[in-house]
Nucleic acid binder design. Structure first.
Lengths: 194, 194
DNA sequence: CTTGCAACATACCAAGCGGTTGGTTATTAT
DNA sequence: ATAATAACCAACCGCTTGGTATGTTGCAAG
């Protein structure tokens, strides 16, 4: 990788972390500049504006991260158990501060969807893509599932609950509450089977 | 009500609306000043800081609003149906822009819980109070409910899903998605009964 | 060897923010 | 009636923000 590309990637990585921790608006360019040890001219050489940097972080960091994460959870023989394992792994592997930090996609949706159309459409596209992945996985084992299910509705329900759980435990700063909701979510998910 | 108290209440009402629409940090004092047609001196006579105003909005506007809302949903013979009616009423009565605006409590939790301890503790207290109300209502009809339920866990699960549903539909700007998740939530809630 | 552009650095700018200061008017208690 | 204080206003302040204009360095092609 060239030096310039290395600089660009470094900016993206640091920006992704800052945005995850503090949100997009509260992320200060000067902090990114300090952490990367570069000047403002360097940043504006690679990105035309703060918004453009935000979009790049979303497309080049968050999007592939999420797709990989969910695909690996769903690309198993039993996606129901794959999802439950995935959820449980989050509660176990993530530190308390990471859990409290929340899901980058959910955070951005909450913060930016009502403010900026560019973010909104990118978030929407990714959410629909993830939802379709879940529905596809469910349809592959539809013989094992209850017949009365509206699969897309169920999928959005699961994602909504997962997101709601992360937000909820921000006030308690405690993984315990998160784990409880996840436990109930696993009960619900497993009950989708016949 | 005295003129002074009228001014104070007006500030609180306008601030509550601005915070609901744009979040706490993005709420500008100058906008509140313009909408209330008062000077900055007037605002700082009634509130010592922006943070103090935020706390007052939370305690004097949001908290009573939420307690009344949930109490009225739960103070019926069948709180299960009370909750489902409550959720359905939200989807039906609220305008699309109101739905997209989200729940003030959830918004503040997402935005401020990780940033300000004062907000965090107030949010936590209200969430626990609401959760206890739900648990209490469930316990009153525990004979009709399944025996295997962890009531507090179930209660948090419901609230998490409700909040997650509001956040989800911010990206689609559409009530339809919200209604779907709520429909699934009602299915789950009614399935709590024997 | 030089020309040109990519890849930065430095210094600066206007705007908006929360907050303060000093003063004025209105109300209330004595 | 007067003193005191509550209620309010206009102007200003320091600070941070995203963004820009100008300058410098280094490599790479001609």
């Amino acid at each position: 990788m060239s030096d310039a590309e290395q600089t660009r990637q470094n900016i993206l990585t640091v920006a992704a972390d800052e945005i995850h921790q503090h949100g997009f608006k509260a992320t200060s360019l000067s902090v990114i500049l300090n952490r990367c040890e570069i000047s403002k001219g360097a940043l504006y050489h690679h990105f035309s504006s703060k918004m453009a940097l935000g979009y790049a972080v979303f497309e080049e960091i968050y999007t592939p991260m999420f797709l990989e994460l969910w695909q690996s959870a769903l690309a198993v023989d039993d996606p129901i158990e794959g999802l439950c394992d995935f959820f449980t792994a989050i509660t176990e592997q993530m530190s308390c501060s990471e859990v409290v930090c929340g899901c980058p996609l959910n955070n951005l949706c909450e913060e930016m969807a009502n403010v900026d159309e560019g973010f909104r459409l990118r978030i929407l596209a990714l959410q629909e893509q993830l939802n379709q992945s879940i529905v596809d996985a469910f349809e592959k084992i539809s013989d094992d599932l209850r017949a009365d299910l509206a699969l897309s509705q169920v999928s959005y329900f699961i994602v909504a609950t997962l997101n709601g759980a992360t937000t909820l435990c921000k006030s308690s700063r405690n993984k315990a509450l998160f784990q409880q909701v996840i436990a109930e979510l696993c009960l619900y998910t497993r009950a989708l089977k016949k």
